[in-house]
Design a protein around this nucleic acid. Sequence first.
DNA 1: GTATTATTGCAACTTATTCGCAATAAAATA
DNA 2: TATTTTATTGCGAATAAGTTGCAATAATAC
Lengths: 125, 125
Amino acid sequence: MNRRNTPTKEAVLNLLMNSRKALSQDAIERQLDIEINRATIYRVLNRFCEDGIVHKIVAEDGKQYFAICKKCENPQEVIQPHFHFRCLSCDTIECLQVPVECSVPNGYEVQNANCVLTGTCNDCS
Amino acid sequence: MNRRNTPTKEAVLNLLMNSRKALSQDAIERQLDIEINRATIYRVLNRFCEDGIVHKIVAEDGKQYFAICKKCENPQEVIQPHFHFRCLSCDTIECLQVPVECSVPNGYEVQNANCVLTGTCNDCS
DNA sequence: GTATTATTGCAACTTATTCGCAATAAAATA
DNA sequence: TATTTTATTGCGAATAAGTTGCAATAATAC
């Protein structure tokens, strides 16, 4: 299951790298110069997730958003679960540099976290 | 827009009251004794949300789950944003008594929070 | 008892995501 | 460089969750 380099893969990765925000499939499709099939975009994104290059956020609208896994200070470091902010006005999602800290009852084991705050961002308020 | 009491409404409310967990539409439909149309269940649930009787959680699977708004200690008190736990093993969601606390950058305004941890609950681990 | 209108069921629709399959094209190999 | 292998792509169809329009029904008010 070796990964191959394709124009599609590169285009999507570049877009995500240059975006400060998490993007949905349709946003990616809209912003791309080249035309890429819907299903392909999903497959590329899911592969990125498997490889730990990208993380997925599911928002209140039930849609999936994808963002590059990096910490501003130290891009190498493994990504920590963190909060996200979804602006209802400009309909974007961005990573907040706030780690999710939540103690769970005994015997519970946390594997993942999906935390999204919604409201209005600075640009829109 | 006055609300009316109907068998449907009561059945759904009773189910939610007696459940320690947040339920999805299909779970509700399955657990109900009487047969209620899918669309109707959604409409009843959304009305409950409007009335502040129930709150909605969107999980990583993109599905909506509904839970009674109450605090164990003080059922009267207005509900605070809190974390939820979704067990991947028994596919249930429950409210954790842990408030969501997350400071956002200047100029950001938070209206709502949707925070779900996933993993294995005590019963399943 | 009658009138008003909130609620329901049904069917159709929308939207997001996935899947099967054949065609294409990276990368490995000869 | 030519050939082989198989990951990737595009297409169309399928799935699944949730919503909506509309006519019929049934709470509630009068």
